[in-house]
Design a binder for these strands. Structure first.
Length: 992
RNA sequence: AGGACCAUAGCUCAGUUGGUUAGAGCGCCACGUUGACAUCGUGGAGGUCGGCGGUUCAAAUCCGCCUGGUCCUACCA
């Protein structure tokens, strides 16, 4: 074996072997255990979030597999409609200078498939690097044939039940991508905005008395007005106003209700009139209390317009430019004015209320022009500034502006025909499933997040004006009648359409999340009732980030309950975001992204800087990022191997919070891998080719240390297992780390040396120690395997043949650790006595080490040590463990002093009641030692005082449980003993 | 505006139902290479558990308020 662990040589070899041997396919005979991987974008690449998530899923999967469960970890990728289409469009533009429209729909889609086939392997290759035991033989894609069928089926059936409908609604429109998006794909960001105040003159020059009162009811303003004052952050939408609304209780405007006012924009001769109405929506205490209602360009206004039958006038095209189509402004204004008076004007779609000079302008340019025109006309509300000049009132104001989460452009509420899922009926059972515990969130508090969202759910807009995705299975005839069916033929049959009737399919595709919502059951063959579906569904646990609970988890629950009658998963393990070491979100623009593969393989500083700044347009920013990178990673990043990376993720996988990825820990766990590697080297050096007690009838003698480490192993097995059951990967990894490093390596291996290297030790004892060394290691490897698969497999191959315990119950498949049984706790080998004895032994050794350090005695200098004042048990322990003590504490001799009074001047430490003496008359520095003792005495006195105070408190002795009081008394006795000893020491030294 | 989570050693984090002398790793200091490992060993320094109040015999832990941070949801024309 190499002297240090070299992961790169081991990992790819084992992964290929596992995959070739079909180790990842379900094979257990126990209860099924299923995890569905959250399908990564097919054209994506592995980021830290994936790596983290995949580590957790793989750990669970490997663990359950070893427990004998019939384990399936289903793999697949997502077609990721918008993301993939954007990517290919950008590629097309840069490489061929073409847009998708140059290619046309079919050729473009071919192009995407081409790209998918070319690059889709990247993410799956990277997944393999993480050691994931995914069943590649069942890999799925959300646009493969099976999914196509499932999606058609779900769509058609939901439509038949009227749970999918089509309608003209106000939706979030992305003017860059030219598609509708769902509420969830909108990010609201606070930006600096303005609020303008304009006067809407009353029709026919009418006037009224405007009276403003303060909260006490005193009149603070009284004036005659011929207008109503309106505030807006989006003046360009005034063109599409359909009404002005005031609150019904607002006395200021009561005289105006039912009258008409004039929108102060557009050609003067065709100014439109709109009614002043009442609605609950306006807040009388905000602004002027009067709100313009632009039903086609604002969600709140839309609701008001619906309630009050106000027409919706669309002003913009798909790119959020002012419309150029439809009727002339003059004709449109005429129609709209008739509508305002209550006339039915039929289809409003042709009405284009954008004045000709503004047509074709971008929305922001149009805004500027509208503001200027109104201001010029004197219809802006003015305020006298500090300098005494009247100026138009423009408030600077933080406003929340909606941005597309992909395109990062301002989203426009836009009136279009879209397909929707009516969610009310689907949400009810989905809420119930979590309420009644059929689905459990870990940690629990995410259930609240889920409930609050589910209880206030809007219908889900599922149509996207994209090309890449599942095309909506609906066909139209020339008259616009719609026929929903699985295919055109079925549409004709279903509706008895004449063969010569021309049908065209809906141009839109479905929201990506519509198909991924079917992920847990469509991957298993649904709508066919396959054996896989019967076996592996519902799945056991979903591992996912909190950020997609709404996007994905909630929708899976709704759709799966609807179509399988069962929940998609029983548990949802929700994890936080992986952030950088400083707690910042990793992002390309910040240049702080870590690539899991780089952490595994290592990367030079130059390459890392290039990677982080490669496509960056601004040289200044690139330089800043380079500098930051250089100061954080002056030497680049070393290779750490997959297991170390996995272990780091697991140790940081604490519940309910984001993860600050800690490079220091990564180094630490790389060292841990090396530690385990070297411990194994030691075991193999001492056991390979030797008698490890494999023969069933060979007599074996187990030493104290052997019994102790076996006992500790049982406890570790119990800890790791229960930690995994509770999804506490941090605890599982910690328990294993402690056992391996602090017990097996630090103590047991050292304790094994005196036996193995002692020529006088019996064959039985040597055999027992070798057997224990090997078996404990072998079991530990199995315990560690789900967390660190490569290292454990590599070592296990060499250790297992010497351990001879691995074939139990898994005959014929004993050639990989993957298929070995998970360690079972054996209560019979838990040995309390051995534990106490070893603790005593450690106590003596540590006491000597302490004395060495305190007295500045070289660690190598052999000492003669005396023990005294102990019980008979201590004397016996000394007799039994002479050679261990001598070896580990580097002693010449250690013996029992019958009469404490005979003790020479010594440095002394207590182990229980017993004293450990290192005689050292010649070594002592009087003053230093006295100072040290004074400090120690002081410390003990503080402890004693604290406990005495506690014990003298009657409330404590009366009310605290007896055991707690007893514990305090024992502590007091210990401290008093220490104190006495220190005092004696001080006396002796002082007498020198 | 409503809600969630977080605040423990210089850094990253543990700390079960209240009872520890408050722990780990990294970093730091001192010492140490003959027989698994310097990606190591031994010993050590370092914390009034964000602040204030309360409940209790007893609070890092339970309750309230405050401060600071992260995030979600909804938003006011």
């Amino acid at each position: 074996m190499e002297k240090t662990y070299q992961p790169e040589q081991i990992e790819s070899r084992w992964y290929q072997r596992w995959e070739a041997d079909n180790r990842f396919a379900p094979s257990g005979h126990g209860a099924p255990f299923t995890i569905m991987i959250p399908p990564p974008n097919v054209t994506g690449s592995l980021h830290m979030g994936h790596a983290f998530q995949d580590t957790i899923m793989d750990t669970l999967t490997r663990w359950r597999r070893m427990q004998g469960r019939n384990t399936l970890w289903q793999v697949g990728t997502d077609h990721a409609g918008i993301a993939t289409q954007m990517l290919v469009e950008r590629k097309l533009a840069t490489e061929e200078g073409k847009s998708r429209h140059d290619l046309g729909r079919n050729d473009f889609i071919d192009k995407v498939w081409e790209w998918k086939n070319e690059s889709g392997g990247q993410i799956t290759q990277q997944l393999r690097r993480m050691g994931t035991s995914l069943d590649w033989s069942r890999e799925r894609f959300t646009m493969d044939d099976g999914f196509y069928k499932a999606v058609q089926d779900v769509f058609v059936r939901l439509h038949e039940e009227k749970l999918i409908y089509r309608g003209k609604r106000l939706v979030n429109w992305d003017p860059e991508l030219n598609t509708a998006i769902s509420d969830l794909e909108v990010e609201n960001v606070e930006v600096d905005g303005h609020m303008w105040h304009f006067k809407y003159p009353l029709a026919g020059g009418e006037t009224y008395e405007y009276i403003e009162k303060n909260s006490d009811g005193d009149v603070i303003l009284r004036e005659t007005r011929d207008y109503i004052s309106i505030a807006t952050t989006r003046p360009e939408t005034m063109l599409g106003d359909g009404a002005v609304a005031v609150h019904p209780s607002d006395e200021r405007y009561a005289p105006l209700v039912g009258k008409l006012c004039e929108i102060p924009v557009g050609p003067k001769e065709h100014r439109r009139l709109i009614p002043i109405i009442t609605d609950e929506y306006p807040d009388p205490t905000f602004g002027s209390g009067a709100v313009k209602i632009t039903g086609a360009h604002d969600f709140n206004d839309y609701a008001v317009a619906q309630r009050n039958n106000i027409p919706l006038y669309n002003l913009m095209d798909r790119k959020a430019r002012m419309r150029t189509d439809g009727l002339s402004y003059e004709a449109s204004a005429e129609l709209a004015s008739r509508a305002a008076k209550g006339e039915n004007i039929g289809d409003v779609a042709a009405v284009n209320l954008v004045p000709e000079p503004l047509r074709g302008l971008d929305r922001f340019a149009a805004r500027q022009q509208v503001i200027e025109a109104i201001t010029e006309e004197g219809l802006a509300v003015t305020r006298r500034n500090e300098d005494g000049v009247e100026r138009p009132l423009v408030e600077n104001k933080k406003i929340m502006q909606p941005f597309g989460d992909r395109s990062h452009v301002v989203i426009e509420p836009y009136l279009t025909d879209q397909w929707f899922v009516a969610v009310d009926e689907l949400a009810k059972p989905a809420i119930a499933a979590v309420e009644n515990g059929d689905i459990e969130f870990v940690p629990k508090n995410y259930e609240n997040m889920y409930f609050s969202w589910m209880r206030d759910l809007q219908d889900w807009c599922i149509s996207r004006q994209l090309w890449w995705g599942h095309r909506i299975p609906a066909w139209y005839d020339a008259d616009g009648n719609v026929y929903v069916a699985r295919n055109e033929q079925e549409a004709r049959e279903k509706h008895n359409l004449p063969a010569d009737l021309a049908l065209t399919q809906d141009e839109d595709v479905l929201d990506t999340w519509f198909s991924s919502g079917l992920w847990t059951f469509a991957t298993l063959g649904w709508p066919e009732q396959t054996p896989e579906l019967a076996t592996f569904h519902p799945t056991s646990v979903l591992v996912t980030g909190f950020d997609i609970i709404f996007f994905w988890v909630a929708r899976m629950i709704m759709l799966t309950l609807k179509f399988t009658g069962d929940v998609p998963f029983k548990k949802v393990y929700v994890h936080g975001l992986v952030r950088d070491g400083q707690g910042n979100k990793m992002s390309k623009s910040k240049g702080n992204v870590l690539d899991p593969i780089d952490l595994i393989d290592g990367i030079s500083l130059d390459e890392l800087m290039e990677k982080r700044t490669g496509n960056m347009m601004q040289p200044q920013k690139a330089k800043a990022i380079s500098n930051a990178t250089r100061s954080e990673f002056p030497e680049g990043i070393e290779a750490h191997g997959t297991d170390a990376l996995r272990y780091t993720f697991l140790s940081q996988a604490t519940t309910g919070r984001d993860i600050k990825f800690d490079m220091g820990r990564l180094d630490g766990y790389r060292n841990f891998c090396n530690k385990l590697w070297n411990a194994s080297r030691y075991v193999l050096m001492n056991a390979d080719g030797e008698d490890t007690g494999l023969a069933p009838d060979a007599p074996v003698e187990l030493s104290l240390a052997d019994r102790w480490i076996i006992s500790r192993l049982q406890q570790t097995e119990a800890q790791v297992t229960s930690a995994l059951e509770e999804f506490r990967f941090d605890h599982a990894s910690q328990a294993l780390y402690d056992f391996v490093w602090n017990e097996y390596c630090d103590w047991y291996l050292e304790l094994s040396k005196p036996v193995l290297w002692d020529e006088n030790a019996s064959a039985e004892a040597k055999r027992g120690t070798r057997r224990t060394l090997v078996r404990v290691l072998e079991t530990t490897l199995r315990l560690a395997h789900p967390m660190m698969p490569y290292l454990t497999e590599e070592i296990w191959q060499r250790v297992a043949p010497l351990a001879g315990t691995f074939n139990e119950g898994t005959e014929g498949s004993g050639d990989s650790i993957m298929v070995q049984p998970w360690p079972m706790v054996d209560e019979n080998t838990v040995d309390e006595t051995a534990t106490h004895d070893i603790e005593w032994l450690k106590g003596v050794i540590i006491a000597v080490r302490n004395i060495r350090a305190e007295m500045n005695i070289s660690p190598g200098k052999p000492l003669d040590v005396l023990l005294t004042k102990g019980a008979d048990a201590d004397r016996q322990r000394l007799a039994d463990n002479q050679r261990f003590l001598a070896k580990l504490a580097k002693l010449d001799s250690i013996s029992w002093l019958e009469n404490p009074a005979d003790a020479p001047l010594s440095a002394t430490q207590l182990v229980g009641e017993m004293e450990v003496l290192v005689p050292m008359a010649d070594l002592i520095d009087k003053d230093t030692e006295l100072a040290r003792l004074a400090k120690e005495i002081d410390k003990q006195e503080k402890v004693i005082n604290g406990i005495e105070k506690k014990l003298s408190n009657e409330g404590f002795t009366a009310k605290a449980p007896a055991a707690v009081v007893e514990k305090e008394r024992a502590k007091l006795a210990d401290s008093q003993a220490s104190h006495r000893l220190l005092m004696e020491q001080r006396e002796k030294i002082a007498a020198l």
